Structure formats: C-alpha cells, structure tokens
Simulated scan of single mutants.
Amino acid sequence: MDLESIRREYIAEGLSRERLADEPLAQFELWMQQAIDAGLKDPTAMTLATVDAEGWPNQRIVLLKHFDEQGFVFFTNYASNKSKDLELNPKACAHFPWHMMERQVKVQGRAEKISHTDSLRYFLSRPRESQLAAWASKQSHRINSRQFLLSQFDAMKRKFAAGDVPLPDFWGGYRIVIERVEFWQGRENRLHDRFQYSLNEGQWQVERLAP
C-alpha cells in the first residue's frame, strides 16, 4: 500500500489576524455555523484526548453538545476510561477535524463535571432508546458478546417500562474550561494559517503559529 503518494493541495481562502474575532468563542461559533451550513457530517464530533495513570494518551470521538463562555460540554459515563483519566488528570484536548472545509480547531483546557441539574436537562432531551442505552452499557468494561449488551438493553426496557427513564447517577456531563484554542486553515504549499488564542490573566492573546 503506497501512502506516500496520497496528497492534495489546500486551496481554500486564507485566514488573517484582521478577520479573526477578538475572543475564541465568537470565532468558534462562526466556524461551527459555517460547518453546519456547508452540510458537513457530524460537525459537532470532536476527538477528545486524555492521559491515563500510566501516562498513556487516549483518544476517542465524542459529540459537543453545548458551548459558551464557560466552556465546551460533552456527556459520558462517569465510570468510563475517559472519566477515570480526567479524575486523575483534568487536562484535556478536543480536536474538530473539518476536512471538507480544510479547517481544524484544537481546544485545550481543564475538564470539570457539570451540575446534576444540567446533566438531567440534557438527559431528558435524549431519545428514550438513548436513555436506556446509558443504563445498559457499562462503558469501557469488558463484555463477552454483543448479545450480552442487547440483553442488558432489553432488561432496562422492562425495568423502566412503566414510566420515565431516570438519570443514572453514573452518567453526566463534563465541561472543558478553555485555556487555549487554535484555528487552522489549510493553505497552498503546506504553508497553512494557524492562530492560537491563549488566556493570560483573564485576557485572550492571539498569536500566529508557523505551520
């Protein structure tokens, strides 16, 4: 398999400091809306990177469900590997790979659990089947077969058949409180445009980075 010959040129419009918002959330909101308008599949999908107790980095794709001046929010099982990593080391990195637009966004910060009220609000907005799945799956734990997983799902259907599905006490949201955000725009000849926002004493500083 020849991978070395697989390449393409990045020819999208460039990114300049004059066109950037003064703070990263405004810039991210603009790019997110443009990704949605462009019809990208799963524009809210982000690769979340954490580090475990042995220093091994871990990555997985999660979905961004909310962002504001407080940070970027995603949801998970609190007994999952990602949660165990974050309990030991709250530093996290999220990456949005918007290849079709020749763009990337990297978000770095510290992850913290959101309130029970906010987790409940989102949980109640999920389809019932997704609520049941949160109860059925012991995320990151070993299982013998898919059939076992489906049997657990059926068991939850029976357990909660008579009413609403409650929020599991082992499930909820995390917020990445952002400290650095990088916006990457592909350019010709691999001379890409990169700008990094860094929080310094409550103020955002913007620097251009070499590609």
Rank of each mutant, 00 (worst) to 15 (best):
D118H: 09
P211F: 02
A12I: 08
R158D: 12
K82Q: 00
E13G: 07
H141K: 15
N144Q: 09
E201L: 06
V177R: 13
M100L: 01
W204G: 04
L25R: 05
E182Y: 04
A35R: 05
Q33Y: 05
K157A: 01
V73G: 03
L40N: 03
M1F: 03
C93F: 11
K113H: 07
W171R: 02
R103H: 13
L25P: 04
E188P: 06
E112C: 05
Q27R: 13
A161Q: 08
N81E: 14
L209I: 00
D118W: 10
E87A: 15
V165D: 04
R158S: 03
A133E: 10
I61K: 01
V51T: 11
L25S: 11
Q131Y: 02
P127L: 10
I61R: 01
Y10N: 12
L20F: 00
D42N: 12
S198C: 14
M1C: 12
D68W: 12
W184T: 14
T44P: 09
S115I: 07
A111F: 01
A162S: 11
I114P: 09
A26W: 14
F96Y: 07
P43C: 08
L20A: 01
L167C: 01
L124C: 07
Y174C: 05
V105I: 05
E87L: 13
R208Y: 12
H116T: 05
R128S: 07
P168K: 11
L64F: 04
A161E: 09
S125N: 06
H192Q: 03
L86P: 00
F74C: 01
A38P: 00
R121M: 06
I176P: 10
K41G: 07
T76A: 13
I178W: 08
Q27S: 05
K65C: 09
I176F: 11
Q147I: 09
A136S: 06
T47Q: 11
A133M: 06
N77Y: 00
N189K: 15
L191W: 08
G55E: 03
L15V: 03
